[in-house]
């Protein structure tokens, strides 16, 4: 199949960027989206042009490294699918594709389609864990956990930290990402101890990183390749109120 591509090119964080146009005329429907870009890149190199830079690694939809906005959709048009798992059979011959990086103040563009998402790591850094050191922990079966609770925790823990939720949100909020970690840990007995303080720390860090606030658009839920539910944001908000009233922290 033939494709017309408009790809965001930007040489560095401070340089201005612009769309560049490319055409590919022998794309196989069995290719993944990133393999299509590989083919483009090999051609660019042979044509003495620098290839398009984009983050990617596992290409199995689990590492969270890849991500680009394709025709306005983070990770492209297919539901519950990362860019690397998107295949060209989802497109049609003659399609025109606009390919951009995640756009958010907290995610500066490093080059072309590659952005800096270290803000997400810093949100985890301030509280996205259970404070246990290695060793000296009880037997794994000492605390039974209901299957429903374990499943709910796992639903939230499935987040891959790709940042599509931020890219989709009109406010560039990281609420879904943050809420997923708060829920994953907060519903488990192991995470209960720090439940009140964790939420306050993480929300404060989210603000500090210049992510916006949640105003219930629900775009994050629709864009999330792992189906993380917007319900978790409600849970985060409830935990936040609970936390500041029961165990307020000063930062």
């Amino acid at each position: 199949m033939k494709l017309k591509l408009h790809i965001w090119r930007q040489t560095s964080q401070d340089a201005p960027g612009a769309f560049a146009d490319y055409e590919l005329d022998d794309v196989s429907p069995d290719m993944s989206f990133l393999e299509m870009l590989d083919v483009l890149n090999e051609r660019l190199i042979l044509d003495e042009q620098e290839p398009v830079v984009f983050d990617n690694d596992c290409r199995e939809g689990i590492c969270g490294a890849c991500g680009m906005v394709i025709n306005g959709h983070p990770h492209g048009p297919q539901k519950l699918t990362t860019t690397c798992q998107l295949h060209m059979r989802k497109f049609r011959d003659g399609d025109e594709l606009w390919i951009e990086p995640w756009r958010a103040k907290a995610f500066p563009v490093l080059r072309d389609l590659m952005v800096d998402r270290s803000a997400l790591d810093r949100i985890i850094e301030v509280g996205g864990y259970v404070s246990v050191n290695t060793g000296g922990v009880p037997d794994a079966n000492a605390i039974p956990i209901g299957k429903g609770v374990a499943d709910l925790s796992m639903d939230a823990a499935a987040c891959i930290g790709c940042g599509a939720c931020v890219a989709a949100c009109p406010n560039a909020s990281a609420s879904l990402f943050t809420a997923a970690k708060i829920t994953h840990l907060g519903v488990l007995p192991q995470g209960e101890i720090e439940r009140n303080t964790r939420v306050q720390e993480m929300v404060a860090q989210m603000d500090e990183e210049a992510f916006g606030h949640c105003t219930n658009h629900g775009e994050c839920d629709a864009a999330c390749p792992k189906g993380i539910s917007v319900d978790f944001i409600a849970r985060m908000n409830r935990d936040f109120v609970r936390g500041v009233t029961r165990e307020p922290i000063t930062r």
């Binding site: 060793g135 009880p138 794994a140 079966n141 039974p144 925790s153 192991q190």
Partner: peptide, 22 residues
Amino acid sequence: VNIIDQCVAQGVPFAREYGGLL
């Protein structure tokens, strides 16, 4: 055996049976 204990203490959501055990 220590690994499983450690991971559960960290909040790794392993699959569980209805009775709550791993």
